[in-house]
């Protein structure tokens, strides 16, 4: 097998994730797309791990899984708060960032 099989699969998933982040309006959907991106990174890490015969990639893949859990927790809490305040989780309605 080729390293590139895994890496290109990771790249494809990454780009799908990026598209999702850009195209989606619903905040929950954006969070899901971010999960796709994080997973593609994990695939890369483990592929490099096997390529180099180390274990560090696995360690950091585990850390990423942990971080992803934290991120989803906080992200969804924020989404809930936004929903409670605005009765909507459509990101394009959140234009407070406009200067």
């Amino acid at each position: 097998m080729l390293v590139n099989q895994f890496l290109i699969l990771g790249a494809v998933l990454f780009c799908i994730g990026v598209y999702g982040v850009l195209a989606r309006k619903n905040a929950v959907m954006v969070l899901m797309s971010i999960e796709l991106i994080l997973n593609s990174v994990n695939i890369n890490l483990l592929a490099f791990d096997l390529m180099n015969g180390g274990l560090e990639g696995s360690v950091f893949a585990l850390y990423i899984i942990g971080i992803a859990a934290a991120e989803v927790g906080v992200g969804l809490a924020m989404v809930l708060l936004i929903y409670r305040n605005k009765k909507s989780i459509a990101l394009d309605e959140l234009s407070e960032m406009k200067g």
Binding site: K25, L91, S95, M97
Partner: peptide, 13 residues
Amino acid sequence: QSGKVGMYGTLLF
């Protein structure tokens, strides 16, 4: 220059 997050993201990426 809309203040819309989605648009900023697209530009960034």
